[in-house]
Each structure stands twice: as C-alpha cells, then as structure tokens.
Amino acid sequence: MVRYLTFSISICFISWLVGMMIHYALRKTDYFNKNLQNLTFIESQNLNRIIGLGVFKWIVKNTFFKFFNQKLKLKTKIDKPYLCSIRNEMTISEIDHLIGFVFVSFFALAKAFDANYLFGLVIMIVNMPMNLYPSLLQQENKRRIDRLIKRL
C-alpha cells in the first residue's frame, strides 16, 4: 500500500510538469483562446460546498501549499488590469491541473485494465486533491474575480 501511495504522489507531482508543458503548447492555439479560457465544471456554490471545496480552500490558504504559486496572491491595491492578470494566471493554473488530472487518470485506467483495481483507486484518490480540486478552486476564484471586474 505504501508503494501505491508513493507512486501516486510522485506521478501527481510529475503531472504538474507535464500539465505546464502541454499547456504551454496549447496556449498558442485558437482552441485554447476560444474554449479553455472559460471552463466551468461546477457552477453551484452548494455543490462546491458538498464536495468539500471550502475545506480544500482552507487547507491551501493555511498550509505550505500557499507558497506554491505566488503569482496568485491578491495585493491590497486592486484595479481592473491587475485583476485581469490574476484571472489569467488562475486560468493557466487551472488548465495545468486539468491536464495533469487527465495525465494521471491514464495511469489509473492502465492499472484498472491490468486488474490492479486497488492501485488504480489509490492513484485516483491522490489525483483528486492534487489536480482536480485545485482546478475547481481556480474556477471558483475566477468567478469571484469576474464579479469584482464587473464592479470596477
């Protein structure tokens, strides 16, 4: 079991790099600019609360995870161009994590097809908080920033 967990955590960290590289190539395409900028998987605040996104947000804000992406910190002086740049950084982070989630999901599916269901399950259990939840959190934060931008 420790071996499964170690592999899962390692592949999730690697997936962040894979997500950044693939996303860098996608950024230059029209598809990205038209379709991936405004993804929304969960619009409901109630559903976000049910799946524990608020708890995840607290963990990110109050643990060492807050040091990972320093570009996503709000300053005290807030104007429209600054909010747009923060929103752009959130989109980049969101897409990186989504690509990472899909990348790791292939490993989990490969283990499931290999009849190693427990290994695949452990991979997905680790993949969700390391890739899916950060992406969902970025989507929620982008919606909040969009409301701020409309007010300005």
Rank of each mutant, 00 (worst) to 15 (best):
F103Y: 11
I92G: 01
T29E: 02
I86S: 11
R87G: 04
H97E: 00
M21W: 07
R151L: 00
K57L: 05
F7A: 03
K142G: 01
R147T: 09
Q70S: 15
I50Y: 07
F32K: 02
Q70N: 15
P129G: 10
H97F: 03
V126H: 04
N69P: 01
F67Y: 14
G19S: 05
N127Q: 07
I9C: 12
L5P: 01
T63F: 01
L74P: 02
T6I: 13
I14G: 09
Q37R: 13
P134A: 01
Q45A: 15
L136M: 02
A110G: 12
R143Y: 10
V104Y: 07
N116Y: 02
M21E: 04
N46W: 14
L98F: 06
R144V: 14
L72D: 12
S85G: 05
M90D: 08
M130E: 10
L47A: 09
T40Y: 03
C12P: 04
L132D: 03
F41Q: 01
F107D: 00
R3I: 08
L152N: 00
Y117F: 05
R147N: 11
L53K: 01
M20E: 09
N48Y: 13
M130H: 08
Q138R: 13
F65T: 00
T76W: 06
G100I: 04
R87Q: 14
Q138M: 08
L136G: 02
I95Y: 02
V18K: 05
N127P: 00
K150P: 01
L98S: 00
M20A: 09
F13S: 13
F64T: 07
F65K: 03
I86T: 11
D79L: 14
F68V: 13
F113M: 11
I11R: 12
N46E: 11
S10P: 05
T76Y: 10
E94C: 08
K66P: 03
S15M: 09
Q70M: 15
V60R: 02
R27Q: 13
S105M: 13
L47Q: 06
F107Y: 11
R151S: 00
K28R: 10
T6V: 13
P81V: 13
K111Q: 08
I22A: 03
V18L: 11
L148M: 15
N88S: 11
I145C: 09
N69T: 10
T40H: 07
F32G: 00
Y117W: 09
R87W: 10
R49F: 11
E43G: 15
M90N: 07
Y24N: 07
T40L: 10
G52C: 10
S93E: 07
F107P: 02
